[in-house]
């Protein structure tokens, strides 16, 4: 098992300050919920290395990834996978070459990378799409392909930003099940940012509630439901706070 995360960080984006601590045991799946602008996506950006910290540090499996004072590992050298809400499959590459992309950057020869990509797509039931362009697959398929594209690099930490938000409501349960299956066999840790408590319930071992850049409460969903420390926590868990999409 990998994915031991110790992250205490502060990130500034204009007026907004995210000040949070995220600690994960290996192999944990954590859901991050909160209103728009709570800092969910900013947290992912900091962990992925897209946004540097202004204070604090991120340590993954004993390796220092970002220390505002002492060093910064750029995103391309972090064992961190990121799947964005809009899957951002490269439109000029076939599905197979999209998945092979992250293997090529790791130094695999072209033929080998493509072969591995095909095998991975086959394993995830996406073998029929290898030669298609991203414009020729559905939203659900694109989400699954983006997941495979991140997984083939064997990250220690997998970040999913609203993986189901762009998917039609009636297709969500099935895709949620697919992601659940993927995460069950994934040896690292994962953080799922979501506004949908159903995602947190189905996918996560633990839930963190973020608001205004701070952690309101953290724990298993059952505990948060039974003993919310803040009225906003119970309202969020009841789905009473309208919160479509992901904020900064």
């Amino acid at each position: 098992m990998t994915g031991t995360l110790e992250a205490r960080f502060r990130v500034r984006r204009g007026e907004f300050v995210l000040d949070a601590e995220l600690v994960l045991a290996p192999g944990t799946v954590l859901a991050v919920v909160g209103r728009n602008g709570a800092g969910k996506s900013t947290a992912l950006a900091a962990l992925a290395g897209v946004t540097p910290l202004s204070a604090g540090r991120i340590v993954l499996d004993g390796r220092l990834l970002d220390d505002a004072a002492a060093g910064f590992v750029p995103p391309e050298r972090r064992p961190v996978g990121l799947v964005l809400q809009q899957p951002a499959l490269f439109p000029h590459l076939t599905v197979q070459d999209n998945v092979a992309f992250g293997l090529r950057t790791a130094g695999a020869p072209k033929a080998e990378a493509r072969e591995q990509a095909r095998t991975a797509l086959d394993e995830h039931g996406l073998g029929d799409f290898v030669d298609r362009r991203p414009a020729q697959v559905s939203g659900g398929q694109a989400a699954r392909i983006a997941l495979v594209r991140a997984l083939v690099r064997r990250p220690a930490l997998l970040l999913l930003d609203e993986p189901l938000a762009a998917i039609d409501a009636e297709l969500r349960p099935a895709l949620r099940g697919t992601i659940r299956g993927v995460l069950d066999s994934f040896p690292g840790s994962a953080i799922v940012v979501t506004h949908d408590i159903a995602d947190a319930e189905a996918l996560a071992d633990e839930v963190v509630v973020l608001d205004a850049g701070r952690v309101l409460q953290r724990g298993p969903l059952g505990v948060l439901r039974a003993e919310p420390t803040d009225p906003l926590v119970s309202r969020l868990l009841a789905g009473a706070v309208p919160n479509a999409g992901s904020g900064p």
Partner: peptide, 12 residues
């Protein structure tokens, strides 16, 4: 976002 995706896929 394509550049972000590429960076997290190991591209310099």
């Amino acid at each position: 976002r394509f550049a972000v995706a590429a960076a997290t896929l190991g591209a310099s």
